[in-house]
Each structure stands twice: as structure tokens, then as C-alpha cells.
Write a protein that binds this DNA or RNA. Structure first.
Lengths: 237, 237
DNA sequence: CTCACAATTTAGGCTCACCTAAATCTATTA
DNA sequence: TAATAGATTTAGGTGAGCCTAAATTGTGAG
């Protein structure tokens, strides 16, 4: 029996690749089954199963060694970036063209990203004027898979007193996004850490104001910052 | 063993309901398995299987009797109209907002119609100014499932010499749509049948022109017409 | 260096939506 | 009215993607 061809153009495969991409970080480290299982909300055994399938595709979509986690192959990375591009273009589109509240774009984009054609992707890109960032400040990968690496860091790694700018905000939790919006914290906003409290909360001043706002630990964990006045990371919204 | 619940919120169920709706016609006649099998491109046995599932849902989505075909239940009709609404709103949106060529809107809408949220549906509807017709001239069902019945007829049932207006054009075949567009035949266009040929082709004048154009049998079969100057059936495009 | 525990993989099942082949029903015709 | 052609249904099977339970493997504490 020859090895049978399996269909790898599925929503599920998309999600695995995206999860590996995102968990691997910029350094593209190996990702463990457990981490994937938690991220994707499926049983660890299911992860192993799928990883073996992804690894035995031609070309392989991941490098996989038993008990050692996975990392994306070139082809896998390409596919992952395509999906990320879809996702972020959709977010920008929903936000800019359809007036979605920022905290709702993620879920809708998450569903649609798997089903839009090349043509629709191109039309959305054109309609938006070829945007480089989504409304959360995340970089939109180019058609060819290029994505300039951002040198941003988590707010939680910033010291007191530093003058900072919001690079991007995680879109994984809508409620946090809503809270940050209410406090006026969006990509490009100027921030200054007034005080770091022992419990992980912060007091920050927003946009040069003298008043200090309190930021919960979760909120701080959702904010990425950089130290130079935004040249790029400014979304059109 | 109690009857086990099955999940009926699937793309496949959507497609079955839509097919039954469309094949049943305005009179909502019973639809045969064979007709469904052909429309959906699946084996007749698969149809039977799904129909039994749809019939045993609560509430049932179809009325089904062995060997006698199916018809939509109230709930099934409601669901079908929701999908049709999604489809037509998407077609209008792609056409109006994203400048899709008319002959490409159908396929894209066909894929996306299953995945858009209530919110996205509403935003698209608002963006378009609550349109009542899609770019092919088909009526867009209201949110509550209302859809005014159109009294249009096929061009093939029109006599020679009559003064007619294009009501709508079938979107099932992109190439025909493209040909008709090239001839200037779109919803609202005035038509006059100059000659019916024995082979099912037509010579018609378009938009009051004195010149007669030839219309193939397939093209004629894709055109629905009415006899009064369009009050409604005029798409914004 | 060993052993227990945690992480991972294997084995075996399930549902969904499809398939083919075989049975059965309906309706039409002789 | 009986035979039969054609439509439909039943029976049994498949792959995808998930599951649980039972191995197995790797690692860090002693």
C-alpha cells in the first residue's frame, strides 16, 4: 500500500500552524504538545496525531521529533503567515470599513480567515490602501510572507519612569481590549510607568497626562511597548 | 438508548436546506432525492441519510416521507431564508463595496454565507443601506424571514414583440453572467423579443435599441423578466 | 544512578458526511 | 394484473478530527 494522500487544506490544519507559529515566538523555538493542546483546546493525544500528519506531508509542514516538540518548516511558516495575513487584514477591514468595535474584530476574523479567497484578500487590501498594521498594532505579513520583525517588548518588562509608546495590544481577550480602550490606551499612545506595584499592577500616565491610571496585571500583560516615538506602528484607525 | 442529539448547525445542513428551498420553487413542492443528489453533487443514498436526520431534528427541519420526497418545515424554511439572506447581502457587498465583477460574487458568497455572524450581517446590511435586491436582481429576504414574492417569469415563456424588463439573472453560471453583462443585459434593462428561433435561441433588442442581439438558449434560460417598468427590481449597482 | 512523575505517544472509539452495493419500493407498461 | 425499470432506501464502509485510557519515555530529585 502506498502512503495515502491526506487533505491538509483544512481549517484545522490552519489552526495548528497558526498556534505553532504564535507559540514559537520570534525565535521560532520548538513548541510542546501540551502547550498546543492548551492553546487549541484539544486533548494532547489529538495533537500528537495531527503533528505526525503535518510532518509526513510533502513538503512537510513541521519538523517533528517524538517527545521533542515541533517547529514550523519553511512551507508551514509560509502557510501560517498567510493565515495571519488574512486574519489581520480582516480585522482592519471590519474595524475601518464596517465600524466594528475593536474588541469584536478578533472573533469574527478568526472564523473568516479560513475561507476568504485570494481575490477577496486582494480586494480588502486594496480597499484599505495596503495597510501595514492591524487595529491592534500588529504587523500584517506581506503577500510573499515577509514580515518585518518588531522590536517591541511587554510592558511588564519596562522600568519605572521610562517614556514609552504602545506598540500593540493582544487581541486574545476582548474584555481586556475593551478596558484598555476605555482608558485611552491604543497603539501609538504615549505611556509612562509611574509605579510598579508588588502585585503586578501598574500606575501609568497616558498620553502625557499628569494623572496616573491603574492597570491590572492582566492588562499590563496584554500591552507591548517600544521606546521610540512610533514611526510605523500607528494604525490608520 | 435515548435518541441521541445530532449537531445540525453545519455547512452541510445549510446547503441541503438551501437546495430544498430552491428546488421546491415558490409553490414549495416536494423535492425528490434524485433532484437533491444532482444539485448537491452527492450520492442519492447520502441524501436519504441527511433527510432522515433533518426530519428527526426537534423541531424538524423538513417534512419527509419515505419515497415521497421532502418539503421544508417552518423552521427549515426559516433557516434556508437566513442563508439566502446572507448569500445575497454578501453578493451585494462584494459588488458594491469591494468592486467585484458581477460574475465572481456568487462563488465567494457561497463560501462565506455559512460563517458570518449576526453582527457582520447587520453591519453589511447597514453599510449598503438595507438593500432589497442583490446585484442579480434577486430579492433579499428580511431579517424576520419575510420575502415579497416576485411575479417574474422566464424569458423563455415570453411571446414575440412584448415589451419586457429584466427582473433578475441566474447567478449559477458565471460564464453566462459574463456574456449577458457584455451584451448590456442586467436587472432593470428593457428588452424586446424580436424573434424566437426554433432552436431555442432569441433575437432581442436591448434597452430600446433598434439593433437585435442574439441570445443563446442557455442565456435565455438564465433571464427572468417582468412586464411593468421596474418599480423595485433595480439594484443600486 | 534510580525511580517516580509528568509529558507524550499508542491504541482503540466516536461522529459527521460522505461513499458503493444490494435490497426494496413505485409506477408504468404489456 | 404482473413484470420490470427506475427511484429510493438500507447496509456496511471510509477519512478527518476529535476523544479516553493505557502504554511509554524523559527528567529531575534524592
Amino acid at each position: 500500500m502506498t502512503t495515502r494522500r491526506v487533505n491538509l487544506n483544512t481549517e484545522s490544519v490552519d489552526n495548528y500552524l497558526k498556534a505553532i507559529f504564535s507559540l514559537g515566538g520570534i525565535e521560532e523555538e520548538r513548541v510542546t504538545s501540551t502547550a498546543l493542546a492548551e492553546r487549541l483546546g484539544v486533548a494532547p493525544a489529538s495533537i500528537t496525531n495531527m503533528l505526525q500528519k503535518l510532518a509526513s506531508a510533502s513538503p512537510p509542514l513541521v519538523q517533528y521529533e517524538r517527545h521533542k516538540g515541533v517547529r514550523l518548516s519553511f512551507a508551514g511558516r509560509r502557510r501560517a503567515l498567510e493565515i495571519v495575513r488574512h486574519h489581520r487584514l480582516l480585522e482592519a477591514f471590519l474595524y475601518e470599513v464596517l465600524n466594528y468595535p475593536i474588541e469584536e474584530v478578533h472573533d469574527e476574523a478568526e472564523r473568516l480567515e479560513h475561507f476568504i479567497s485570494e481575490r477577496l484578500e486582494e480586494r480588502i487590501d486594496a480597499k484599505l490602501g495596503r495597510p501595514r498594521f492591524d487595529p491592534h498594532g500588529h504587523c500584517i505579513p506581506a503577500l510573499d510572507g515577509e514580515m518585518p520583525k518588531q522590536n517591541s517588548m511587554l510592558l511588564t518588562s519596562a522600568g519605572e519612569g521610562e517614556n514609552l509608546y504602545v506598540d500593540s495590544i493582544s487581541d486574545r481577550d476582548a474584555s481586556i481590549l475593551k478596558l484598555l480602550k476605555a482608558k485611552g490606551i491604543t497603539p501609538g499612545t504615549r505611556l509612562q510607568v509611574k509605579r510598579r506595584n508588588g502585585d503586578g499592577t501598574y500606575a501609568v500616565s497616558v498620553g502625557g497626562s499628569s494623572r496616573a491610571l491603574n492597570i491590572s496585571r492582566e492588562m499590563a500583560g496584554a500591552i507591548r511597548i517600544h521606546c521610540v516615538k512610533a514611526s510605523l506602528a500607528q494604525c490608520t484607525g
